[in-house]
C-alpha cells in the first residue's frame, strides 16, 4: 500500500450544511489512517481554491445557484470518480423544501419583508451567486458515479464507503448503513 501513489481527494459543499463534512471528521482517529492513504486537494480543510486533477471528488449539497454549477463542473472535469454525499446532494434535501415556494416569494420574504441589510431592496451585486428557480440534486447537473445517502451518513458509513473505494473494491453499504435520514 505504502509503495503506491497516494489517492488524491477533493471535497466541497454546495447547497448543504457541512453536516456531511462534519460526519467525515467524526471518523475520529481513523482520520490518521485516511491521511495515510490520501492527500487532499480542494476541501474546506485545505486552502486550495480550485480543484486540480483528482482520483475522487466528494460533493455535499444540492445545486441551488450558478456558483454551485461552476464548482460542480470543475469537480466533474477534474475527478475520475465523483461521489454525491448526503440527502442534499442526492435529492436536493432540506434546501429543496424551497422548491414548493415561488422564488419571487422567497426574495420578498428575505429582502423586503424582513428588512434586508441595505434597506428594503433586492440586491443585484454580481458577487452574489444567483439562485436557480429550484434546488437540483447533483446528478441532474453532472454525471455522478457513486451515491452515499444519509443526512448525514454516519461516520462509519463514510469510512466503509471510502475504504472500499480507495482500496479498489466496489463500494457496498450493508442494509443498516443505507439510510436517507
Amino acid at each position: 500500500m505504502n509503495e503506491q501513489r497516494k489517492i488524491r481527494l477533493a471535497t466541497c459543499s454546495l447547497a448543504g450544511c457541512f453536516g456531511c463534512h462534519m460526519s467525515l471528521l467524526d471518523i475520529d482517529e481513523k482520520l490518521f489512517d485516511l491521511l495515510a492513504m490520501v492527500e487532499f486537494d480542494r476541501t474546506p480543510f485545505t486552502d486550495i481554491k480550485h480543484c486540480g486533477p483528482c482520483d475522487i471528488g466528494i460533493v455535499e449539497g444540492g445545486v441551488s445557484n450558478a456558483e454551485n454549477v461552476h464548482v460542480l463542473k470543475e469537480f466533474r472535469k477534474n475527478c475520475k470518480v465523483l461521489v454525491a454525499i448526503g440527502a442534499c446532494a442526492i435529492t436536493g434535501g432540506v434546501p429543496a423544501l424551497r422548491n414548493n415556494i415561488d422564488l419571487w416569494d422567497c426574495f420578498q420574504e428575505v429582502y423586503l419583508y424582513e428588512g434586508g441589510l441595505e434597506g428594503n431592496q433586492i440586491p443585484n451585486d454580481p458577487e452574489l451567486p444567483l439562485p436557480f428557480d429550484k434546488v437540483y440534486p447533483v446528478y441532474e447537473v453532472v454525471k455522478v458515479d457513486y451515491f452515499l445517502p444519509g443526512c448525514p451518513p454516519s461516520a462509519d458509513t463514510i469510512w466503509k464507503f471510502l475504504t472500499d473505494l480507495i482500496e479498489g473494491r466496489e463500494p457496498k453499504l450493508d442494509s443498516a448503513m443505507l439510510r436517507y435520514d
Binding site: 450558478a66 422564488l103 419571487w104 440586491p123 443585484n124 454580481p126 444567483l130 439562485p131 436557480f132 428557480d133
Partner: peptide, 13 residues
Amino acid sequence: ALETARNITGRDD
C-alpha cells in the same frame, strides 16, 4: 433556470 432570478434582481452580468 436562472431566468426567474435574473428578472427579480434585474441582473444580466
